[in-house]
Design a protein around this nucleic acid. Structure first.
Lengths: 360, 360
DNA sequence: TTGAAAGCGCTAACAA
DNA sequence: TTGTTAGCGCTTTCAA
């Protein structure tokens, strides 16, 4: 080990008494080199503890196989699963995966994408629903254009493309159908007074779920006023507070459809804190089926959105020949997972005229 | 945008009608450049959508600010939090963070570390307890040496250093103290027949917890036989199966100390499936205080190990002057979070001679 | 089969 | 203040 610091290909070449070109050829494995030379080089590399410098390699070889995922936060179970799917599929195809978190801040998002471009990512995957503002459209249009100009691909996961002609792939779940199924499940159990908790007006994913919820209600012959959407946003705390407020309002609903499982976690907590029971006093349906949903109390009936598959699909689609899939939109199916948080609505306790009051 | 493909510094220089050196100077921000020239360069860069090539930059400038975290899996809440802490602290100091998952496979670990070396990581953080075999000691010694030779630093989080003189930093929780506190909490509540579920013999973290458990028992004047350690390993499923087996054995324990919160999740499920109740029939204590622990049923009493802080500490320690902290070991404190999964032991139902049989 | 040499895009002397 | 130029470590023609 000549100097402290990095061992270079030149050190290996000197040690094996060959040229750097030969070392490179042996190491790349893409050339036929006589076994004797080959093993001499390999031995030299090993004894010196040589590792190739990716930067030099990328610079000389024209980039590297790198896919980048950009998401809100890695500690959210759903996003973590998407990231795992991306990583798995990328690894399977011999690509490296870089993940960046934005915390939901558009400025940070732009920075992270800038970073990914600097790193030479050939695929950039943006994950998660957003509020589709003009600023968003402009931002994404810009990403798509610069990425495309550099020969990279942009994949939008669970968020819309501002323009179908933009060089971007869209992969998403059918949120509306999922919400419709969940609501229908509640309706089939006999519920008619169902609230939706976790609306986030403008957020494309949540809006689609709300639309599905309304559609199911309508399909069941209920008037539009039957829908009650609480725009409390996402997260456990939001669900907790919104439910507490709802309960304080008196018994109005027999079931609640949560915008996602974390909201559902908050709902369950609030119901328990109020001394009530799920599903006896209130039925609850979640969304996403995070790993711990089956450990909620009671185990949560929810809509399964195969997050890992979303990640895998994003990568495999992006890695196909661009000419096969120009600006295409891919929709992944979801299905409802029935566990124990839904029961029949509580029997009518006080006779009133329009269907009875039930707890909540 | 001259050609399709990457815009280089030369394109920007041509467009702004200056030399590449000037562009580099403007972009680095470390040199005084007249405002006029400066803005001309900036404008050119912007209109061309220029992003610097990290590879070229790293190659010419001698590396980059990169810290790498290597962990078992990112979907585990605990690891995810550690990763988030690392990312946050790295970002705060202007460093980039690369995370790699090994799935617990030593071969994969070696590969990932090789990759991080190739990427030029100047700090490599290995997270998570392991079984300290001779192979492990050899592997880590090797990592420490090659990393040190390249001027990088190795940080071991929650795992021991094979040799205090090795150029490696160790940051960990005081697992033994945490387990002692948890066990003492159970003892104070009146429990005497406490099982430990989730042992993983040889795993340094779990062994320390078991040691703390035994120590607390002994400090309370209980004989060594009072300890009952089930080496079922970690994970929800392990906890579920082990508990089911334990329950089938008949009532022998009044409390269970889970190796971590996911094991506790399994335990709670098994208890519920058996038609029993926590804490009425069995008290349960977890370890780690993952975000959803408060949503378990009942909310889980557990030992809080500030995972994010572990990550932050690893980075900030590693980024200090190496001469200040040579081969040092840092221990982070933990504390118990009391929620609702611990109650008094169930009153004796069948009079027997040695303290009574209780459910489980 | 092997080696010499020309870059890849950038930074940092060194000159002007 | 600005430009010229020599590398950084590697891959890849092109020659031998």
């Amino acid at each position: 080990m000549a100097t402290r610091g990095r061992v270079t290909i030149r050190d290996v070449a000197a040690r094996a008494d060959v040229s750097v070109a030969t070392v490179s050829r042996v190491l790349s494995g893409r050339h036929r080199v006589p076994p004797a030379t080959r093993s001499r080089v390999l031995r030299a590399a090993r004894t010196l503890g040589y590792v190739a410098n990716v930067h030099a390699r990328a610079l000389a070889g024209g980039g590297r196989k790198l896919v980048a995922v950009v998401l809100r936060q890695v500690t959210s179970p759903f996003y973590a699963q998407v990231a795992e799917g991306v990583e798995a599929e990328a690894a399977a195809q011999g690509w490296l995966c870089l993940v960046g978190a934005t915390g939901g801040d558009p400025r940070r998002e732009t920075e992270v994408i800038q970073l990914m471009r600097e790193e030479g990512a050939r695929v950039v995957i943006l994950v998660g629903g957003i509020v589709e503002t003009p600023a968003y459209r402009k931002r994404v249009t810009h990403y798509a254009e610069v990425l495309d100009a550099a020969g990279s691909r942009l994949v939008l996961c669970g968020r819309p493309s501002p323009d179908p002609d933009l060089p971007a792939l869209v992969v998403e779940f059918d949120n509306e159908a999922g919400a419709r199924a969940a609501t229908t499940h509640l309706l089939s159990a006999g519920h008619r007074r169902i609230a939706f908790l976790g609306g986030l007006p403008g957020n494309t994913a949540m809006d689609a779920r709300v639309a599905g919820y309304r559609a199911a209600l309508a399909a069941h012959g209920l008037p539009p006023e039957a829908a009650h959407v609480v725009d409390c946003g996402l997260g456990r705390t939001a669900g907790l507070h919104a439910t507490t407020a709802l309960l304080a309002d008196g018994p109005r609903f027999t079931a609640v459809f949560a915008g996602d499982d974390m909201v559902a976690a908050g709902i369950l907590r609030a119901v328990a804190d109020a001394g009530l029971s799920v599903p006896d006093d209130l039925s609850v349906v979640g969304y996403n089926d995070i790993p711990l949903a089956k450990d909620f109390h009671p185990p949560l009936t929810t809509v399964r959105t195969p997050a890992e598959e979303l990640g895998r699909a994003a990568v495999s689609l992006a890695l196909r020949d661009p000419r096969e899939t120009p600006g295409t939109r891919h929709v992944l199916a979801t299905h409802i997972v029935i566990r124990d948080s839904v029961g029949p609505p509580r029997p009518i306790t006080c006779g009133d005229t329009h269907g009875g009051h039930h707890p909540v």
